[in-house]
Amino acid sequence: MRSLKSGKKIIGVLVVVAIGQVIGWGTVGLLAVVGRQVAADLGMDISAVFAGNSIFYVATGLSAPVLAKAFIRFGARRVMIAGTFVAAPGFVLLSSSTGPASFFAAWVILGTAGSATLATATYILLNEIAGRRRAIGALMLVTGLASSVFWPTTSFLSDAMGWRGTCLVYAGLMVLVCLPLYAFGLPRRTERKEDVGSLGLPGEPHIVRKSTFYLIVSATVLCAFVTFGFGATMIELLKAEGLSPTQAVTFGSMLGVIQVSARGLDFLGGGRWDGITTALIAASTLVVAILLLMIGGGSHWMIATFILLYGLGSGALAVARATIPLVFYDNAEFAKATSRIALPLNLISAASPPILVGLLSNFGSNALLGFGMLCASAALLMLYWLSRHRPPIRRIAAS
């Protein structure tokens, strides 16, 4: 009976967090739909407008280490509630922007709020409450659909009331939907028995070396560089490989479904392997995918195979990035480590698209693919080393 109640509690938490994350990621992704409207209205270059996304990731990354102590002291629920209070004024400021200064300031506020409410915050919350890797996998399975829900929503709203009105609607969603969900739908943090004595037996905590942490960071950042960068440049890369614009969009549009499918497969098997195993398989898949595109000579079949393998690898890596620390850290240390990893992860998310676009524009697709292959291969070697140095007894909560 107790396990049944616990299962219902976890499902309830997942529903609440999933709704909040779909709203959170969907609303901050509005520039993909209204970017040109914003550029015309504010008299800004389109590339400067899309730099708002980069500022968002930088602000999120810089805020993460600062929030680490708050996550440990107050718990993720309280931090997420506070972050929602911050997000609403960010959308209000965005809606009233008159030029670059106020526009970029709004994205700084939204990035700070994102650090408290999105991705890292939810991983910490689920580890506090559920303590299961599969809970994180289940959440990511749903949140992968944020753009599918909110791109058409943003398009409808912007047609009806303009991009400024859309931002005000999204500010209202923060206050009227997300805030009550987090305040009343999430349980308060309680200490779990398995938190005593982290990765080994009670009273025998596993000490993670600094070198291991740096290796986790390096492997995570390199994988993110490839997946974020390739995702942002995918259409242009496919054009450079010989596809027409229409064909490039058609092939590229398959990525979302494939990535969500990969997350689903990892979720179904999440109790049988850990995040490092997922990352090893996914990184290997990325290396093979890039290699096939390099030698494919523009063949449509080879490009389709690349899309399939890249989608599976990048989708699985999204889960692995969140769950690798569970292999090494207990509850409080997981919050600290995840917050510290978020800084370089978000910085690379902001930097990778312009770097890879520059390589593609100046040196061609082979330069981009070669550099991506180098990064993915280096990450694969680091992940292999991590797999050889797992703790002798894994935490119960990691499975």
Rank of each mutant, 00 (worst) to 15 (best):
I348H: 03
P392R: 10
L291W: 08
L369R: 04
F306W: 15
L280A: 06
P344M: 05
I393V: 14
I307R: 01
A289E: 06
G264P: 05
L308G: 05
M294K: 11
P325I: 01
A367M: 11
S387I: 12
L292D: 08
A316V: 03
M373A: 15
I324W: 01
I258T: 09
Y384E: 04
W301F: 15
A289H: 03
I290A: 09
I324T: 07
G358A: 13
L368R: 09
F334K: 00
A332S: 11
A322W: 02
T277K: 07
P353L: 04
S352Q: 07
R390D: 08
L347A: 01
M294G: 12
V260C: 07
S361N: 13
V327I: 07
Q259E: 13
R388T: 11
F334T: 00
Y329E: 06
V357C: 12
P325D: 14
P392C: 06
L291Y: 06
A350L: 03
L265G: 06
L345K: 02
L383P: 02
A316F: 04
L265I: 13
L343R: 02
L381F: 13
S387M: 12
I281G: 06
V287I: 12
A279W: 04
L308D: 09
A376Y: 04
M382C: 14
G270C: 10
T285M: 09
S284V: 09
A318T: 11
G311F: 07
E333T: 06
S299Y: 14
R321N: 14
L326W: 00
F267R: 01
F371V: 12
S365V: 13
M302W: 11
L286C: 10
I341N: 07
L292I: 12
I307S: 00
L359M: 15
Q259S: 10
H300W: 13
A367V: 05
A379M: 04
D330L: 01
H300C: 10
L380S: 09
G297H: 08
H300Q: 14
L308K: 09
G298M: 13
I276Y: 07
W273L: 04
G297N: 11
I324E: 03
A316D: 06
A316G: 06
R394M: 07
V260W: 01
A282M: 08
M382T: 00
T338I: 11
S261Y: 01
F328R: 04
N362I: 02
